[in-house]
Simulated scan of single mutants.
Amino acid sequence: MNQTQDKLLEVKGLKKHFPYKQGMFSKKMGHVRAVDGVDFTVYRGETLGIVGESGCGKSTTGQMILQLLEPTEGEIWFEGKHLTGLDKGEEKAIRRNMQMIFQDPYSSLNPRMRVEDIVAEPLRVHGLGRGREIREKVVELLRLVGLDAHHLSRHPHEFSGGQRQRIGIARALALHPSLIVCDEAVSALDVSIQSQILNLLKKLQKELQLTYIFISHGLPAVKHISDRIAVMYLGKIVELAERDELFERPMHPYTEALLSAVPIPDPTQRKERIVLQGDLPNPANPPSGCHFHTRCPYVQDMCRQSAPSLQQQADGHFVSCHFPLQELRNLI
């Protein structure tokens, strides 16, 4: 990724802590640190993949970027504007340029609405046309995603999962956004359909100059579509690098373990699977020091005592680890 490109989105120190309560009187006991200090930049025209285990905070991060959740702390800058503290008019204008494709194509579409009304709803809300003009725009949007005008009068239950997700994509494109957050956009689909949707997203990105944040727990899908990849663990980014660099030379032990679980297409080849010991720690009471030290095969005393920061180790390759280099870890 050419770092001289325009910065579309900047996230600085982003946190989201959810209070939790217990007992008969619902006494507040503490906070779940869903996102605990995240920094990254998204450049115009690229796809940034965000990957990690369930509960790592990746979907919460996406929801805060779209202002669906209010951050506990931190800054979000989009097209040079600070998103915190916008009035209703400014927020509505910004939202035209930021859209989401949801995980479940079955529940993200209103079953009582026809396809024409589902895709036209954003246009009507923002006052972008009426009557025949809106209908023509909807037909064009359906054509872009591989559907036809004869689908207009149908309801979501008359479509397959892949077709429903295409409808969701058409709805996200209706306002010509600059940024689309794809939150597990293919994980609910069959593998063969996943590849079709991923290829469609890449085609649309090229034709419409779109920028994506692609959130997923599936590394093959993230590798297929992303330019850069951020790896999250327990609310923090532990590694961020160009796609090929990350897959060929991971520098964080968590990334290394994730990559070891990716199947190899050639059955004659074997690779050693790294099985992490223990469960994901409780985000309401994360470990001291490095959050990963309770499961890390290379853990040292320093890891238990102090938390590493995200530091650049090579050109465009950032890692949050006291012992980031594979060569150094092999000597431990």
Rank of each mutant, 00 (worst) to 15 (best):
K28F: 02
K28S: 12
G30R: 01
H31D: 13
V32W: 00
V32Y: 00
R33H: 15
A34I: 00
A34V: 00
D36C: 03
G37A: 10
V38C: 03
D39I: 04
D39N: 15
F40H: 08
T41I: 15
T41C: 13
T41Y: 02
V42N: 09
V42L: 15
Y43G: 02
R44E: 13
R44C: 04
R44T: 10
E46A: 04
E46V: 01
T47L: 04
T47F: 04
L48N: 08
L48Q: 07
G49A: 05
G52A: 08
E53G: 01
E53Y: 00
G55F: 02
G55H: 02
C56I: 01
C56Q: 03
G57D: 03
G57K: 00
K58P: 03
K58I: 06
S59G: 12
S59E: 09
T60D: 02
T60Y: 04
G62N: 03
G62Q: 05
G62Y: 06
I65A: 01
I65D: 01
L66R: 03
L66V: 00
L66G: 06
Q67G: 04
L68E: 01
L69Q: 13
E70F: 08
P71N: 02
P71D: 01
E73W: 13
E73D: 15
E73H: 13
G74W: 02
E75H: 11
I76M: 02
W77G: 00
W77S: 02
F78A: 06
F78V: 06
G80R: 04
L83V: 01
T84V: 13
T84K: 15
G85L: 01
G89W: 09
E90V: 00
E91M: 14
E91H: 09
E91R: 14
I94L: 12
I94V: 15
N97A: 10
N97C: 00
Q99F: 05
M100N: 05
I101D: 12
I101G: 06
Q103G: 08
Q103D: 06
D104H: 09
Y106R: 08
S108V: 05
S108M: 05
S108D: 00
S108A: 13
L109I: 03
L109K: 01
L109E: 03
N110T: 01
R112N: 09
M113H: 12
M113W: 11
R114N: 07
I118S: 08
I118L: 14
I118D: 08
V119N: 04
V119W: 09
A120K: 12
P122G: 10
L123H: 03
R124S: 14
R124H: 12
R124I: 14
G127I: 08
L128S: 01
L128R: 09
L128N: 08
R130W: 07
R130E: 15
I134Q: 11
I134V: 15
K137G: 11
K137T: 14
V138I: 09
L141E: 09
R143G: 15
R143H: 15
V145N: 10
G146Q: 01
L147N: 13
H151M: 14
L152I: 02
L152V: 01
S153W: 12
S153E: 14
R154P: 03
R154A: 12
H155F: 15
P156L: 06
P156N: 06
P156D: 08
E158Y: 08
G161E: 06
G162P: 11
G162Q: 10
Q163G: 08
Q163A: 11
Q163I: 09
R164I: 13
Q165R: 10
Q165C: 11
I167C: 11
G168A: 11
